[in-house]
Amino acid sequence: MPGGRPRAFDADAALGRALEVFWRQGFEGTSLTDLTAAMGINRPSLYAAFGNKDELFAKVLDRYLDGPGAYAVAALAAPTAREVIERLVRGAVELTAGDGTPHGCLTVNSVHACGPDAAFARDLALGRRMAGEAALRRRFERAGDLPGGCDPGDLARLVHTLTDGIAVQAASGRSREELDRVAELALLGLLGGQARL
């Protein structure tokens, strides 16, 4: 039995364009009209391929975390806790203030810039962020190079607070150069003489 009519658009490319719109404008700041215009499709095609706006955002968030945000998972594989921290902090600057991408962080914006009508997007992003922090805490629990008395959970929260702050500053217009200098100072404070100056 023949299937339905084939899609007349590249779903992967359309999802990439939706990611950029959500990243640049936030969940609540993005309308279906914004999405269909950027994706080059009409609403029925959007619904058929991706579901409603919430479902599309869930797919976009997965793509973000598996694509531009994948540096965070990769950083956990660094051999020492010090290197994990350095890769996360430097990666946050690259992701949120680098060239060729919107400034700021999709997950940070989704958690902090959503009203009650966007509870789905906020809760989804928050859940992903908390899972990332828990993975970082587990990585620090396995580390052999934490200073004595350093709580892995507190350290994970501190690193997340730092990377979130970088994202907020990037979204506020701070330059890559400014944030690189902030990252150097933060790493110097956290890691002592191990930071690259």
Rank of each mutant, 00 (worst) to 15 (best):
N52I: 06
L61P: 01
Q194A: 10
A156Y: 11
T161G: 07
E20S: 11
Q194N: 04
A135V: 10
A8H: 14
A8R: 15
A11K: 12
T101L: 11
S31W: 13
A13L: 15
G104I: 02
E28V: 10
A167C: 01
D117I: 06
D151E: 14
A13H: 09
R90Y: 00
V73P: 05
R139T: 14
R196T: 07
D123S: 12
C105K: 02
A37I: 03
E28A: 15
G115P: 10
L126V: 12
G127D: 12
A75L: 12
A81I: 04
G144C: 09
V73E: 13
A121C: 14
L162C: 03
F22S: 10
V182M: 01
G127E: 13
V84S: 02
A171H: 10
A167W: 00
P79M: 06
F9A: 07
L106G: 03
I41H: 02
T101C: 01
F9M: 06
T30Q: 02
L106R: 09
P68H: 04
D117V: 09
A170S: 08
R122F: 07
F22N: 04
D10W: 15
L32C: 05
R24M: 07
L146E: 13
E55T: 13
P102A: 02
A77S: 14
R157T: 13
R129D: 08
H103N: 02
D66E: 14
T96G: 00
H160S: 12
G148F: 15
V89F: 00
G165M: 00
C150W: 12
A135R: 15
R129H: 11
R142P: 05
R128T: 07
P152S: 14
I166H: 00
V89S: 00
D66A: 09
L190E: 01
D151Q: 13
E141A: 15
N109C: 06
A131Y: 05
T36Q: 07
M1Q: 02
G16E: 13
L162R: 02
D154M: 13
S172Y: 07
F140Q: 10
F140E: 14
E28G: 15
D151Y: 11
H103K: 04
A183Q: 00
P102G: 05
D151H: 11
T33H: 07
A49G: 03
L61I: 01
G67V: 04
G104S: 05
D180G: 00
M1P: 01
A74V: 08
G29Y: 15
E83D: 08
D180Y: 01
V159G: 05
E133Q: 12
A38R: 01
M1F: 04
A125F: 07
A74I: 09
L136M: 13
A74T: 14
A131L: 10
L106E: 01
C105F: 00
Y71T: 08
R128D: 07
E177P: 06
A75V: 11
